[in-house]
């Protein structure tokens, strides 16, 4: 379980998160929606300890992540996977080595076992036989999927997705959505995705939370969100240019 308590973060005096509270239950798939620049990526980076909050806490199964040293944090992170907005593949390594890197670092596996694991994970994301390719030679969608394979290489308990479908064509986006859904259900992974793509949010979320003004202003099931009366949420999900979000 991930519990986020009163998280505050500002950059150069400009507040981005202002006392954010959020709880993510085990095995659940939570989607955080919000406008571009509202702090979704910043929120995810706090959950995995890439950023330190100005104040507030993040508890992972009861342990306060914000109080951990580098060693503990690195240990904890082996239970996490993160898919970055821009894939963030290591371009000095081949695709196969990208996926193998966490295994080489943390697991005592033979070369054959590593190869098998890498092939299995790449197969899960429907990429086979690309082990030796360079990341720079892949399309955006393929990079995203390799990023996903790398994130699940260690069989993590938690996977964080930063805009898994932005910049992909609708068919590829749908393939990624069902992949995320499958992984979560088959491997009982707790997943947190942030996105501003509502199609994707409805597809992969058990629960959807809306981030606005540095706080979670609403959360509910996809059904509840669809029928939501909250004017801010309404404006966002219908994508209208006039409404409370753009007035303030």
């Amino acid at each position: 379980m991930i519990v986020i308590e009163k998280l505050e973060k500002s950059f150069n005096g400009r507040p981005v998160l202002t006392g954010l509270d959020l709880t993510i239950k085990d095995g659940e798939s939570l989607v955080v929606i919000g406008r571009s620049g509202c702090g979704k990526s910043v929120l995810l980076k706090h959950v995995i300890g890439l950023m330190r909050p100005d104040s507030g806490h993040v508890y992972i199964n009861g342990d306060d992540l914000t109080a951990m040293g580098e060693k503990e944090l690195n240990q904890l992170r082996t239970r996490f996977g993160m898919v970055f907005q821009g894939a963030a593949l290591f371009d000095s390594l081949s695709v196969g080595e990208n996926v193998a890197l966490p295994l080489r670092e943390h697991k005592d596996l033979s070369e054959d076992e590593i190869k098998a694991r890498v092939r299995e994970k790449l197969k899960l994301v429907e990429l086979e036989g690309v082990e030796d390719a360079r990341p720079s030679s892949l399309s955006g969608g393929m990079k995203k999927r390799v990023g996903l394979a790398r994130a699940i290489a260690m069989d993590p308990e938690f996977v964080l997705y930063d805009e898994p479908t932005t910049g992909l064509d609708p068919i590829m986006a749908d393939a990624i959505n069902s992949l995320i859904r499958n992984l979560q259900q088959r491997l009982s992974i707790t997943s947190v995705a942030v996105t501003h793509d509502m199609t994707s949010a409805y597809r992969i979320g058990d629960r959807i939370a809306m981030l606005h003004g540095g706080k979670i202003i609403y959360h509910g099931t996809p059904e509840q969100v669809r029928n939501c009366e909250d004017p801010v949420v309404c404006q966002f999900i219908t994508g209208s240019a006039s409404g409370p979000i753009t007035q303030s």
Partner: peptide
């Protein structure tokens, strides 16, 4: 590597 978040990615897989 920093601006393409590769350094962040290293940290998330528990590598300093």
């Amino acid at each position: 590597m920093r601006v393409t978040e590769q350094i962040d990615a290293l940290e998330t897989i528990g590598i300093s």
